[in-house]
Design a protein around this nucleic acid. Sequence first.
DNA 1: GATACCATGCAGGAAGGATGCACCGTAAAC
DNA 2: GTTTACGGTGCATCCTTCCTGCATGGTATC
Lengths: 119, 119
Amino acid sequence: MQEGCTVNLTVKYIARKWTMLILLELYKGEGHVRRFSELKSCLGEITQKVLSARLRELEKEGLIENRVDKTTFPVKSEYILTESGLEIINIIKDMKRWALKWKISNIECGCQDCSQCVL
Amino acid sequence: MQEGCTVNLTVKYIARKWTMLILLELYKGEGHVRRFSELKSCLGEITQKVLSARLRELEKEGLIENRVDKTTFPVKSEYILTESGLEIINIIKDMKRWALKWKISNIECGCQDCSQCVL
DNA sequence: GATACCATGCAGGAAGGATGCACCGTAAAC
DNA sequence: GTTTACGGTGCATCCTTCCTGCATGGTATC
């Protein structure tokens, strides 16, 4: 493996702030779909600009797809997990299993009810 | 899931430059062990300082262990993958399978003989 | 004193991310 | 005709994190 290898690059953008949160929000959505504005409000502190940038990135990498419905009143822009994206979610789930096994005492997780986390 | 969640934090330090390469070098070593100086020369361009920092980090996170042999001539410092570290390697392998499935055309990987990559 | 091995401290610079503001297009509602 | 909701883009600035290079430190053997 090298720096620049696909695995390396993938891990790198997954690790960027907001990326996993966005993937998870899509995963939670009905049919793994969410609108731009839904994501915006779910994620709270994220700015439009950053959200837009992350979505572009994930789209470019093929983890999500963008479906724009121009027939509706204000434009409706939906994002949906692709098959590839769903498989990444599974890998993230493996990471969670690992974390629960080896890092039980984690404070942030400890504060939350892990059963509420979809992962 | 939140920022600050174990999964998030883990992905974050795994994504840091050199971290995966170091884990892989340990994985390749006999008994999953490597000396500081071996890692240094395997990884080529890494500086002692960064290598040292990454190893500290991985040790703190429980993915590797440090065994120092002070009885020898110059000190001998060995690093070994823990059980937890080995399981992370498996997750990274899953990522590779995913990458091979969805990102076949990756240039960097294409230049190399993937069969030579231990992942 | 030179060398091998392992490591840390400081300083500079690049990259990533947050923030603020302005701006585009559409179409419905007022 | 102006405002509003929706989904964006472009530019500029700031701050923090990360990476790198260079110097320095300890120890113990030769």
